[in-house]
Write a protein that binds this DNA or RNA. Structure first.
Length: 463
DNA sequence: ATACATACC
DNA sequence: GACTGGTATGTAT
């Protein structure tokens, strides 16, 4: 069986208002409606799970042959993280698929994948029916792209500092003996893994069970994945130390993006490279041995990509002159904002794999994708994304620094539950958490939505 | 305005 | 032995 999940979302009003008491009153009135919705939802879930489990075994029982083909199709995120070069991806994908079996989760993945395939087919069809002049490169388009490039020419220098396997590294400080064994943080769900474990294909967002199977099978039973429970108190402490050190280098624009990632926007230093090198040594010393990697470039996006290039414990400068060259060589998946789906669309519909191809087929991209997506991709192709695009845009000149959060939410997973009374308790718990968050941040909202995840991983939303 | 999709760590 | 998270944002309808 699986889980069921409830979530409450509450988009902010346009203007943040400080109303210490009014904030909390938003939610309780809506609880009644929420209850009704859950009632309907669980009613559906029964029939759904039944039909699914009835249908499924038939399909898989007979088909063992094309397991690896299926694995490839499901694109069980291959090796594009640091430390995963040159591993046997096919073997790993096969094990993952086999061990995932018919779990509700994997069935859900299949459904989602089928929808993506549908989109691929749809776009391919549109391409078939179009004539080349529909997607030719217009002068207008090239003017726009040149405009982007000129606009970024005199930006300050962006630095992205990214801690190396952060949670794991924190744990390794007190457990150095785990350094050369396959180890990870997290039990049911793996949060980070060390570099030994990554060579077995064990990575973040993977189910613990799968990680254990991978290590066991790929080492012929000689090794066992060591799982350390997560300790967020420790990570937060270390993160605070890191932030304090880094803040000294850029008190004004320094921004912590997550516990293990910091963005800087420093003046046009002459010796950035050395400064960042010192910064990294400084971080290592202050944290008792945690290493980080850094990227230095004209935009946050490029800096972020660059920070990944020499991981772990390395850095890379991409100066304005080499930016284009850098982007052209880049697999599109490396661009923040291009995930599994966009990558697949680009590859299978447009035959685009790299930044260079993205640029060369810019006419096609403009024709096939939604305006916003197209703009984002095209900006990326000339190394200029990060201004009001889908990727979180930090303090870009004109765009009202967009630290305007648009929503706030809390969600929790728990084992399937059909007792309404218990569901209500859960719901109230979540509401309370959210309510406290909102009080703390002094914000109000105008729309409340509830999300329910059923045992078969279907998701329902109600506003 | 709402349901669903995509991406990130 | 089973076992797949949490938060934010964008887009289509």
């Amino acid at each position: 069986m699986s889980n069921s999940k409830i979530k409450i979302v509450n988009p902010y009003t346009k203007h943040k208002r400080k109303l210490p008491d009014g904030t909390e009153k938003e939610k309780p009135p809506s609880n009644k409606e929420i209850r009704r919705d859950i009632g309907n939802a669980t009613g559906n879930s029964d029939t759904n799970t039944n039909t699914n489990t009835n249908n499924f075994p038939k399909n898989t029982g007979s088909s063992n042959i094309n397991v690896s083909a299926q694995a490839a199709a499901l694109c069980i995120s291959a090796s594009d993280k640091a430390g995963m070069e040159g591993i046997d991806r096919e073997k790993i994908a096969t094990i993952i698929l086999k061990e995932s079996g018919n779990s509700a989760y994997i069935q859900q993945q299949r459904r989602r994948d089928e929808k993506v395939n549908e989109r691929v087919r749809h776009l391919q069809q549109r391409l078939q029916e179009a004539s080349p002049r529909d997607y030719r490169v217009t002068d207008e388009l090239d003017d726009t792209l040149r405009g982007y490039q000129q606009r970024q020419a005199n930006r300050a220098t962006c630095v992205v500092v990214d801690m190396d396997m952060f949670y794991m590294a924190c744990e390794l400080l007190s457990r150095p003996h785990l350094n050369d064994k396959p180890a990870c943080v997290g039990r049911e769900m793996i949060l980070t893994s060390n570099y030994v474990a990554r060579r077995y294909g064990v990575r973040s967002a993977m189910a613990g069970l799968i990680g254990r199977k991978l290590v066991e099978q790929l080492s012929d039973g000689r090794e066992k994945l060591i799982q350390v429970p997560s300790n967020f108190k420790l990570y937060k402490e270390k993160s605070k130390i890191v932030n304090e050190v880094i803040r000294e280098y850029d008190p004004h624009n320094m921004k912590a993006y997550s516990l293990d990632e910091v963005y800087l926007d420093i003046g046009p230093y002459l010796a950035v490279e050395e400064v960042v090198f010192r910064l990294r040594q400084h971080v290592k010393k202050a944290t008792g041995g945690l290493t980080c990697s850094a990227g230095i470039a004209r935009t946050h996006t490029i800096a972020k990509i660059a920070s990944d290039a020499n991981k772990p414990n390395g850095q890379l400068v991409v100066d304005p002159v080499s930016t284009l060259e850098f982007v052209r060589a880049l697999p599109v998946r490396k661009i923040p904002g291009v995930g599994r789906v966009t990558e697949k669309l680009l590859q299978q519909v447009c035959n685009i794999h790299t930044g260079l191809e993205l640029y060369e087929k810019r006419g096609l991209v403009q024709f096939l994708f939604q305006p916003a997506t197209a703009e984002f991709l095209l900006k990326s192709s000339v190394g200029c994304s990060g201004e009001g695009s889908s990727f979180a845009s930090f303090g870009t000149e004109q765009e009202e620094s967009s630290d305007h959060q648009k929503g706030i939410s809390r969600e929790r997973s728990f084992s399937p539950e059909s007792d309404w009374a218990l569901l209500n308790i859960k719901l109230e718990e979540i509401s309370r958490m959210l309510s406290e968050d909102m009080k703390r941040k002094s914000v109000m909202g105008h729309t409340v939505t509830v999300k329910v995840k059923l045992a078969n991983f279907d998701v329902l939303n109600r506003a």
